[in-house]
Design a binder for these strands. Structure first.
Length: 679
RNA sequence: GCCCAGAUAGCUCAGUCGGUAGAGCAUUUCACUCGUAAUGAAAAGGUCGAGAGUUCGAUUCUCUCUCUGGGCUCCA
């Protein structure tokens, strides 16, 4: 019997009998590995375990607990779901069923326009478990495009995908290019179509690989049903999408479900209600919020901090109205590009007015209000500008997607020579402000031109994209490209931050704009006494104050750091006799610049402490006989141990330090104030 | 905008197979004055999201609208 040589990922070599499969290889290494294996990587290509290994190949066994392995488990589970659905709902048409983050989905079109109900999901899940128990093989075969069309004669969505394969057969596939290529790349291998058959009745087109048998699967849960457009096309048919999650073990599945519960607990909409921060009265209309006092104070602190930093950063403060004549947005081009996203026009005596959907055109008017010199550049205009956008009803989501919101918006006008330095220092500024709010993990995206949705010459786009790239590299911030993701007027850098439970949020943005200066005829007089067009940068750090607040709320799970907490300390007198002392100390702390309240002894102490803990206050101060006698507090910090007999001065200092730690610049003032009045 | 599911007291929810509703917490009052996560009692609190239809009668069934949730699409 001939032998073949296999190289393992660690570089070691093995001799195996010719015809040995990846499963055989895994078995020869260890039984445990064979059990955990879901696929193999042969010479860098993911392959089914059951394929005979070629000679002199480098082979890695893919196990279910790796990212690639989970991807295969999930995708295989989606096939099982499609089989279950076609069995339970004869005549069901199915389209695509990819693996996604944490799970998978499959899109279906049920006969007679039927939709899945909650009970249907349970039935599908039960049938899936039967299929898994039956340990059906996933057997691969390849066929020509014409054969595939016959095989899927009653599956119109599959037919459409096969036709795409045909159309793209001579074109090299670029999975990044568009969705069509992506589908085609999934199933096409060199002009043929590969399919996987589970039973004589059920076969699905797929490039693979898959687990060898359905018995390898099982740690899954169907999560929800949702509508989804075929091929993502709003004008196309609406399919029924079932989402599921799948993992390599029961423990991993449970951990995932637990994470979802934790995320739900810190949902900003839930916390906003529980902590009395803000609400969305239905009387106001969708996507519009009112801020209650406790949410209001946090917002004020965020805005104050932002203003302070901008003032120190060389920005100048401007204010602009919420309404403008439509001609302004015609000039800016926004009316042409985003009319559908703007509130309907108001006809008035001398024209048609619109709520402003952004601040930039007005800032351009400020720039243009008089002749500008190069000596003024870079000119940085800053405004907490409230804008109104008619977000489509189905897209609204708490504070994250809202119809009236406030941007911490700035427009920077500079010369071409200044551009790189300006962007690089802007990156420092952005990250420094984000760090003050407790974020430490950043990644950047560089969005490039979408030729179908953009204005301006290639030269200008190339130049500005290059400027952003160089600035990112010079700054050393790692970044990824998002091709075609830019706004119509120029490329942009987005900053994603990771929150306390690992979720990523897109917050800050820096955008290059060669378009508005042109449209508004902006110019400055250079040192050559000639007129030049400035370059314009748009940037926002929070993005929207509302959204940033929502992200903070979820990041801290409502337990705001001391500098942002609506109430920093609550004093609880043990009994009525200690109320005077409690009020005196509260007044002193307030005079020192802290936010402190008192809850009198009408309820039992334990109950009042519980209430304060539910409000997630940083400090609860209990005062009784000892404290009145010794000028002390019983300090009960959030998440810490109770300390009795802490002197008033020591506590004041501690709170000052804590506030200052998070926010060095603003809180300096509070420390100074505490130093003078607490002594 | 599209698909699906919802809307009952300030909050979280139960309930009415069609006969106008109930709990816990919160609120108010009274008693208790207490040293670190729920003292007891009482009261008050609802056009059962809005409008229309069916019906002797609608919070309940039907339709429309508004708002909300999960997705899709979109996101200057």
């Amino acid at each position: 019997m001939a032998e073949i040589n296999i190289t393992l990922p660690d570089g070691s070599q093995r001799s195996l009998e010719e015809g040995t499969t990846a499963t055989g290889l895994a078995m020869s290494i260890s039984r445990g590995l064979a059990k955990a294996a879901v696929a193999a990587e042969v010479n860098g290509v993911e392959t089914d375990l059951g394929v005979a290994l070629p000679a002199d190949a480098t082979v890695a066994i893919v196990t279910g607990d790796s990212d690639e392995g989970r991807h295969i488990l999930r995708h295989s589970t989606s096939h099982v779901m499609a089989q279950a659905v076609t069995q339970l709902f004869p005549g069901a048409k199915f389209s695509i069923g990819p693996a996604i983050t944490d799970g998978f989905y499959y899109d279906f079109d049920l006969p007679g326009g039927k939709t899945f109900l909650e009970e249907d999901l349970k039935a599908v899940e039960a049938r899936m478990r039967e299929i898994i128990k039956a340990d059906q093989p996933f057997s691969r075969s390849e066929m020509s495009i014409d054969e595939a069309l016959v095989m899927f004669a009653d599956q119109p969505y599959k037919q459409e995908i096969i036709e795409r394969v045909r159309a793209l057969a001579d074109v090299p596939l670029d999975p990044n290019d568009d969705e069509a290529s992506e589908d085609a790349a999934e199933i096409a291998v060199g002009g043929t179509v590969s399919v996987y058959r589970n039973t004589p009745e059920f076969v699905d087109m797929c490039r693979g690989p898959h687990v060898p048998t359905t018995g390898k699967l099982g740690h899954f849960k169907l999560m929800k049903v949702a509508g989804a457009y075929w091929r993502g096309n709003e004008k196309g048919p609406m399919l029924q999408r079932i989402y599921g999650t799948a993992w390599e073990s029961k423990a991993a599945l449970e951990e995932h479900l637990h994470r979802l519960e934790e995320a739900e607990k810190r949902d900003h909409r839930k916390l906003a209600t529980e902590l009395d921060l803000l609400s969305f009265p239905s009387e106001l209309g969708g996507g519009l919020a009112v801020w209650h006092p406790k949410g209001g104070i946090i917002r004020k602190l965020m805005e104050d901090y932002s203003r302070e930093r901008h003032q120190n950063g060389g920005y100048q403060f401007v204010y602009t109205p919420h309404l403008a004549n439509g001609k302004l947005f015609e000039t800016s081009g926004h009316l042409a590009w985003y009319k559908d996203g703007m509130y309907p026009p108001m006809e008035m005596d001398n024209g048609t007015y619109y709520m402003k959907p952004m601040n930039c055109p007005m800032h351009c008017l400020i720039f243009r209000s008089r002749q500008r010199s190069y000596r003024e550049l870079p000119l940085r205009l800053f405004e907490l500008g409230t804008v109104y956008r008619y977000e489509r009803a189905g897209t609204l989501h708490g504070l994250m997607r809202i119809r009236g919101f406030t941007q911490d918006d700035s427009h920077i006008y500079c010369t071409e020579d200044q551009l790189l330095d300006e962007i690089a220092s802007l990156l420092d500024f952005v990250l420094s402000v984000l760090r003050a709010f407790g974020f430490n993990d950043f990644t950047a995206n560089l969005s490039t031109r979408d030729p179908k949705k953009s204005v301006g010459s290639d030269e200008i786009w190339d130049k500005s994209t290059e400027a952003l790239r160089v600035a990112l590299e010079r700054h050393g911030l790692p970044f990824k490209y998002k091709h075609g993701d830019a706004a119509f007027y120029g490329p942009k850098i987005d900053i994603d931050v990771r929150d306390a439970i690992g979720r990523s949020w897109q917050l800050s943005t820096i955008q290059c704009d060669f378009n508005l200066p042109e449209r508004f005829d902006l110019e400055y007089v250079g040192n050559d006494n000639a007129r030049h067009q400035p370059i314009m940068l748009h940037r926002a750090l929070f993005g929207s104050v509302e959204r940033f607040f929502g992200v903070l709320l979820e990041h801290f799970a409502g337990a705001f750091p001391a500098w942002l907490a609506p109430v920093q300390a609550r004093i609880l007198p043990v009994a009525t006799a200690h109320e005077d002392y409690a009020h005196e100390q509260a007044a002193a702390l307030r005079a020192a610049g802290f936010r402190v309240d008192v809850v009198e002894a009408n309820d039992q102490l334990g109950k009042r402490i519980r209430a304060a803990k539910m409000e997630k206050l940083p400090y609860v101060l209990v005062v009784g006989d000892d404290d009145v006698a010794n000028h002390t507090f019983g300090v009960n910090p959030r998440g810490g141990e109770v300390e009795r007999g802490v002197s008033v001065e020591a506590f004041t200092e501690r709170l000052s330090a804590e506030v200052a730690e998070m926010n060095p610049e603003i809180v300096g003032a509070a420390i100074a104030a505490a130093g003078t009045s607490a002594g």
